[in-house]
Computed example of a mutant assay.
Amino acid sequence: MRVALLVNPAARAGAHTGAATHAAERLRAHGVQTSILSGGSAAESSALLRTAIEVGVDAVVVAGGDGTVNLAIQEVAGTGVPLGIVPSGTGNDFAATLGLRELDVTAAADAIAGGVTRAIDLARVTRADGSTRYFGSVLASGFDSKVNDRANAMRWPRGGSRYNIAILVEFLTLAGIPYEVELELADGTREHVVGDLVMATVGNGRTYGGGIPICPDADPADGLLDLVLVRPAGRLRLLRLLPRVYRGTHAGVPEVAMRRVRSVRLSSPGVTAYADGDPIGALPLRVDVVPGALTIFTPAG
């Protein structure tokens, strides 16, 4: 097996920790031919990976976090080329959804060498200009995208605790945002929601922000996306909601609506959405599920 291993040294905290080197050594010990690709920018990394796929690698591996994985997803989606993940970035939510433990490089490399794969869904975002992009875990808009704005601007602390601090700071100025949401349910029924929301979140995976289970029941292989809408309430009321979000038990809260959808269109003035932890575009955006679009390596058993 010939593998292209992508590492992004420009990532905020991740792949330069040595995970890529360790993973490459482990794969080679299994007899897997491994070439490390390292671009100086996202565009260069994508170009290197695209060339490797065109030349003919058997698999792509990413050592890094959600942002670097997202780069690889754009190139391998729909190709049948399997993707392996060595979770070693600031946020590893997509890997966690797939059952891969953060920084367990040996287990991740062994899963790739084992060759067991499965097909999972991706979400495809269509922007107002018609351009598209895939994501694997969660798209955030509203309060949680503002949290991402703040967390990404922070240089300290690293890891998931940045999101906790950003949540508390943004909470101080929390207010409802006017939204229009058009959605298609699993049975083809359409719904139209107009009004103020605190946030609108679309999940292919379960967690974001370093492990927050915003879509606790999401299954990346069920052919559907999980939509979470949170309506405004008093600040004290919403503050009580936060611990339930962290436990993934917020489904029963009156201000929270959850739907399983095939597609959803989100509109709101001045709101930028984030997906897999990075900005993906300003609303309005349409999000569709693409069943079985990605082949991934998975731990045996």
Rank of each mutant, 00 (worst) to 15 (best):
3 V>W: 07
5 L>G: 01
5 L>Y: 03
9 P>D: 00
23 A>C: 11
28 R>G: 09
32 V>L: 12
32 V>W: 15
47 A>I: 09
49 L>R: 04
50 R>Y: 10
51 T>S: 15
52 A>L: 06
52 A>P: 07
53 I>P: 11
55 V>P: 09
67 G>Y: 11
68 T>W: 01
70 N>S: 08
78 G>E: 07
79 T>A: 07
82 P>E: 06
99 G>I: 01
106 T>D: 15
106 T>V: 15
109 A>F: 07
110 D>A: 10
113 A>I: 05
113 A>V: 09
113 A>N: 03
114 G>V: 11
117 T>F: 04
118 R>S: 08
120 I>M: 11
131 S>A: 11
136 G>R: 04
145 S>A: 05
148 N>C: 08
148 N>Q: 05
148 N>E: 03
149 D>H: 14
154 M>T: 08
156 W>F: 14
159 G>V: 02
161 S>D: 11
164 N>W: 15
167 I>M: 03
175 A>D: 13
175 A>L: 14
181 V>P: 10
182 E>W: 10
191 E>K: 14
194 V>I: 14
201 T>D: 07
204 N>S: 02
205 G>Y: 00
213 P>V: 01
224 L>V: 05
226 D>I: 01
227 L>N: 02
228 V>M: 11
231 R>G: 13
231 R>L: 05
237 R>D: 11
251 A>N: 02
253 V>L: 14
259 R>E: 12
261 V>A: 03
266 L>K: 09
269 P>W: 06
270 G>H: 06
272 T>E: 13
276 D>L: 01
277 G>R: 06
277 G>M: 09
279 P>M: 03
284 P>I: 07
286 R>K: 13
295 T>D: 10
297 F>C: 11
297 F>K: 11
297 F>P: 08
298 T>W: 06
301 G>A: 14
